[in-house]
């Protein structure tokens, strides 16, 4: 069994253990099987595993297909992305992103990489934070360093990047030489080893095919002392709140998606992908296995979202 398949199997097993996931029906997975192979047979399961299966919501798909399917989802929702975020989180996503950036503590001269941040939400906040630090600085003590500041926004989806660029011009960030928009994959970043001070990924790692690869890449591009921060929708453990949240997730969000964005399926995927994502402890374990130290997480709104952080030393 290849390492990748083993990792996928382990992830599936951990999801089953958490009882926070409903596995896709055999019918959904059947199209992946070779002809003449019964869906329930052990041979079928082995073949399925060797095909490097991964999850797309509750469906099982080939790894090669997942990035294409995720790409389609985000191409579909790009135009209404902001409106839907506000509706789904009642505007709280803004506070969550503020908290992420305050935990990052940006500084003038920082080289920062925001992955899966096509809309620029996090990047703009980092930039504003650096500017406010510069204004507070004693007698221009750090103005010489300010020129070294550079924020890279990396996203695999060109439509999302276009939304970000458009917003940048609307908000007057177009003049900023320190802001770069790069189309790239979180699993194969085009940056040099040890080139970044900070790495953030907000609501993006859930959509990555191989989380371990993305974490390894994050570790690779960070400098010694660099920090990894991940803001992601996570698992609620508060009993009554969990039930309310489940009803809201599976009934309200897809309906709102259909109403506002005219796309129920994409938002159904969103909800399912949250349930498939490892819980806070398991994800923290994965971050530590990638080599990070001082791995911590902070739950916001009872675990609806969590901010995980790690330090490269």
């Amino acid at each position: 069994m290849t390492l990748r398949a083993a990792a996928a199997a382990r992830r599936l097993a951990s999801c089953t253990r958490q009882q926070s996931v409903v596995l896709g029906s055999q019918a959904e997975a059947a199209h992946l099987l070779a002809p003449g192979m019964a869906a329930g047979s052990p041979r079928a399961a082995a073949a399925f595993l060797h095909s490097h299966a991964t999850s797309f919501g509750y469906k099982q798909v080939r790894e090669e297909e997942k990035s294409k399917l995720v790409g389609n989802v985000f191409s579909s929702v790009a135009s209404s992305y902001d409106v839907m975020n506000d509706l789904m989180s009642a505007g709280l996503h803004r506070l969550w992103k503020d908290r992420l950036v305050s935990k990052l503590s940006p500084f003038p001269g920082m080289k920062h990489l925001d992955v899966a941040g096509g809309t620029g939400d996090v990047a703009f906040r980092v930039l504003d934070s650096i500017k406010s630090v510069s204004r507070r600085a004693v007698g221009g003590a750090i103005s010489d360093i300010e020129e070294d500041t550079h924020i890279y926004v990396c996203d695999i989806n060109p439509n999302m990047l276009n939304v970000g660029k458009k917003r940048a011009s609307e908000r007057g960030y177009n003049e900023e030489k320190c802001l770069s928009w790069i189309q790239g994959d979180a699993e194969a970043l085009s940056f040099e080893d040890g080139s970044m001070d900070g790495y953030t990924i907000a609501f993006g790692i859930r959509n990555v095919t191989h989380i371990e690869k993305a974490l390894a890449e994050a570790y690779r591009v960070l400098k010694r002392g660099g920090r990894f921060l991940c803001l992601e929708l996570s698992h609620v453990d508060v009993p009554l709140f969990k039930q309310i949240y489940d009803v809201y997730s599976f009934s309200v969000i897809p309906a709102v998606g259909e109403l506002v964005a005219g796309d129920r399926q994409s938002y159904q995927y969103l909800v399912e992908s949250i349930r498939r994502f490892p819980n806070q402890e398991n994800f923290a374990q994965m971050i530590q296995e990638a080599g990070f130290e001082r791995v911590e997480y902070e739950n916001l709104v009872g675990g609806v979202v969590a901010i995980h952080s790690g330090l490269k030393l």
């Binding site: 009642a90 709280l92 506070l95 969550w96 503020d98 908290r99 305050s102 806070q280 402890e281 923290a284 374990q285 971050i287 530590q288 296995e289 001082r294 791995v295 911590e296 997480y297 902070e298 739950n299 916001l300 709104v301 009872g302």
Partner: peptide, 19 residues
């Protein structure tokens, strides 16, 4: 003093798994 922001109740935890 660093709160989680209005409407965003928070709790934090340190992870010390063996890795």
């Amino acid at each position: 003093s660093e709160g989680a922001g209005a409407g965003a109740s928070s709790s934090s935890s340190s992870f010390t798994g063996t890795g």
